Simulated assay, not measured.
Amino acid sequence: MKAKFSLYAKHIVLCLAFLFLPYAFTSTNTIFSLPHLYTNAHDRIYFFIYFTLLCFFYFNYYYLIPKFYFSEKKFIYYSIIIGFLLFFLWISTTLDHPARNFLDFRNPPEHFEHNPGLFPEKFPPPPSMVKEMPFDFVGGPPTQYGHTSLVYLIGVISSLLFAITGRLQSVEKEKVKSELAFLKAQINPHFLFNTLNSIYALALKKDDKTPDAVVQLSELMRYIMTNSNDEVIDLTKEINYINNFISLQKTRLGNTVIVDYKVTGNTIGKQITPLILISFIENAFKYGVNPDQTSEISISIDIKEEQLTLSVSNKKTFSIQSESGIGLQNTIERLKLVYPNKHQLKIQDTPEKYVVNLSIKVG
C-alpha cells in the first residue's frame, strides 16, 4: 500500500511539474510566474496543449506501445506517432489566435471584440517579420513549431524508454523466478531423500520414536508444499521448520550426536525467503555425523533488528566428502539471486572443522 501511494505521489508531482514547465522561466524577471488562465489567452492555449501532451504520454505508454510497438506493428505505431505530431502542431499554431480561441470562456471576450487581428495595436508585428514570412501565418511565431515538436518527441522517446526498460525488468524478474523454481525443485527432493533415509534407519531398529518421526516429517513436507513457493514468509514459520528438522535428526541419531542449538532475538514481524537456511544445517548433519563415534554440531540463530546471523559448525568425520551437496550449492546460488548485496556468507573449511557464518537482512 505504501509503495502504491508513493508511486501515485511521484506521478502527480511529475505531472504538475510538466504542466507548469512553460512558466518556470518567464520574461518578467522572475524565476517562476503562475499562468494567467483567465485573462491570458496564450497561457490558456499552452496549458491546454501541455495537458493534452501529458494525456498522450500515458496513452502512448499504456496503449500504443504495448498494442503496436511490442506487437511488431512498428509501421502502424510510427504512423500514429506522426499523425499525432501533426495534430499537436496544428492545435499549437491554429488555436493560438484570438479569432479561434475557443478556450476563452469570458462572455463576451471584450478584449478581442473590436480587434480580431493577430497582434494588438500596442504591439504591432516587426516589419521584417511581415515581409519575410513566406506563407499566410495565422498562428504563433514559427519557433512554436519547434517548441511543440521538441516537447512531443521528448515525451514519445521517454515513454518508449520507460516501457522498454520496464519490459526488460519484467523479463529479468521472470528469469530469476524460473531459476529459483529450478533450484527449489532440486532442493526439495534432495531433502526428502535424506529425511526418508533417516526414518528408514529408525524403522530398521524398530525404534518407538518412528511414529513421531513420521509426524515430524509430515509437518516438514506440509511446510514445503504450502510455503516454499512464496517469495517471503514469516521468520517465525521458518524457525519452526528448522526446529522440527533438528528434532527429527535428534530422534534419528540419538546419543551419537551432541547438538548445541539455540535461537536468540525476536522473530515477530520479520520475513525471510523460505528454505534459505536449512541447507547449511542439513549439510552439517549429512557430513558431520559419524555413527561410530560421538559427533558435535553447533547451530545458532541470532536476530538483531533487521539482521539475522546463522552460525553452523561441525567436526569433520572420516566419511565427509570433499565437495558440498547439491542442496548447499543451490542455496548459495539462491542467496546471490534473492539477496544481492544484502547478505554475507563466510565458509571456513579446515581439515578438522566446517564452519558457516551467514548474515542476512530480514526486514
Rank of each mutant, 00 (worst) to 15 (best):
A9C: 09
I12G: 01
L14M: 14
C15G: 07
L16S: 06
F18M: 06
L19R: 02
F20S: 05
F20D: 02
T26K: 13
I31F: 15
H36F: 05
Y38A: 10
Y38E: 11
D43V: 02
R44P: 04
I45W: 05
I45T: 10
F47W: 00
L54C: 07
F57V: 07
Y58V: 01
Y58H: 09
N60D: 02
L64K: 00
I65M: 02
P66H: 04
K67D: 12
K67M: 09
S71V: 04
K74L: 08
K74H: 07
Y78F: 15
G83A: 01
L89I: 14
T93A: 14
H97K: 13
P98S: 12
A99P: 03
N101K: 08
F102I: 15
E113Q: 12
N115V: 09
P124N: 08
M129I: 03
M129Y: 13
V138H: 11
V138P: 00
G139V: 14
P141I: 00
T143D: 12
G155R: 01
S159A: 06
G166K: 07
G166R: 08
K175R: 14
V176N: 09
K177L: 09
A181M: 09
A181N: 15
L183C: 05
P189L: 03
N194M: 12
Y200E: 05
A201R: 04
A201V: 12
A201W: 08
K205C: 01
D208V: 11
P211Y: 08
P211W: 12
P211R: 00
V214Q: 01
L217H: 03
E219F: 11
E219R: 14
I224Y: 01
I224M: 13
T226G: 05
T226K: 07
E231K: 13
I233G: 10
K237T: 07
E238I: 08
I242W: 03
N243C: 00
N243Q: 11
F245R: 02
S247P: 00
Q249N: 13
R252C: 06
D260V: 00
Y261L: 03
Y261I: 07
N266T: 11
T267W: 00
I268H: 07
I276M: 10
I278P: 06
F280G: 11
I281P: 08
S295K: 08
E296M: 11
I299Q: 02
I299G: 06
S300K: 15
D302I: 14
K304N: 15
E305I: 10
Q307M: 12
L308W: 05
K316L: 14
Q321C: 10
S322H: 13
G327R: 04
N330W: 14
T331M: 10
E333N: 11
E333T: 09
P340K: 06
H343G: 04
K346T: 12
K346E: 04
Q348V: 10
E352L: 08
K353E: 10
K353F: 07
Y354K: 12
V355H: 13
L358W: 02
K361L: 09
